[in-house]
């Protein structure tokens, strides 16, 4: 064993979210975190298309096309939910009212820069959605990602080579091998998973870690 699987990592992130938090889970892997929030705790999920108090997917046959998440998948609204328009929704982000957002990443730099919206590949159709707003607004921006790309390149880097989503915005990175805090001195390892060692992480990332 070398680290955590996707579901285990989602569970690990869910454990770090305190009761009472307002949380936005980004499209993709971060949405898995919702499946692992402890049932007894009141943690309120925000979706940027205008809902606080988002619940799980509906039963088949009870899909409501008016009730979707940011990934445009059907969801439900829990008792206590609230709907609002887009400017209010992004005011909640930009205004620092969300406690946590969990985002995917292509790269995170040691100063907390995030690249997750574009690989800059020629011919690709650009699409940013709410990524930049989320990155710049939540009190805590956490990234959930594999440490390495499929080609074995580190997603933790000294400087992002992909187009930036936000500057100095990431506070913590949850990877399959370890949890990292972004500090003024760069990445600090908070927790190692499996038999991963600090030395191995330094070799894989080519970064000085503390």
């Amino acid at each position: 064993m070398t680290g955590l699987g996707r579901a285990e990592l989602a569970q690990r992130i869910a454990r770090d979210i305190p009761e009472g938090s307002y949380v936005n889970l980004g499209i993709g892997a971060p949405t898995l975190v919702a499946n692992h929030l402890p049932a007894g705790l009141e943690i309120i999920l925000h979706t940027e298309n205008g809902l606080l108090g988002m619940g799980p997917a509906p039963e088949p046959g009870l899909v409501d096309p008016d009730l979707i998440n940011a990934g445009k998948q059907p969801v439900t609204a829990l008792p206590g939910a609230a709907y609002f328009h887009h400017a209010d929704s992004f005011g909640m982000m930009r205004g620092g009212h969300l406690d946590v957002c969990v985002l995917g990443a292509f790269q995170v730099s040691s100063s907390g820069d995030l690249a997750n919206w574009s690989t800059g590949a020629p011919g690709a159709i650009p699409a940013v959605g709410g990524a930049m707003d989320l990155a710049s607004g939540a009190k805590n921006v956490w990234v959930m990602t594999d440490l390495l790309t499929r080609d074995g390149a580190s997603k933790l880097v000294a400087e992002c080579s992909y187009p930036l989503t936000g500057v100095g915005c990431v506070s913590r990175v949850y990877t399959d091998r370890a949890i990292f805090d972004v500090t003024p001195d760069g990445f600090r390892v908070r927790e190692l998973f499996g038999d991963t060692t600090l030395g191995e992480l330094e070799r894989l990332t080519a970064l000085d870690l503390t």
Binding site: E48, F90, G91, V128, M132
Partner: peptide, 11 residues
């Protein structure tokens, strides 16, 4: 095409 971050678009 002009791409605008979603919150900036709304605001």
């Amino acid at each position: 095409l002009e791409i605008v971050p979603q919150g900036n678009l709304a605001e």
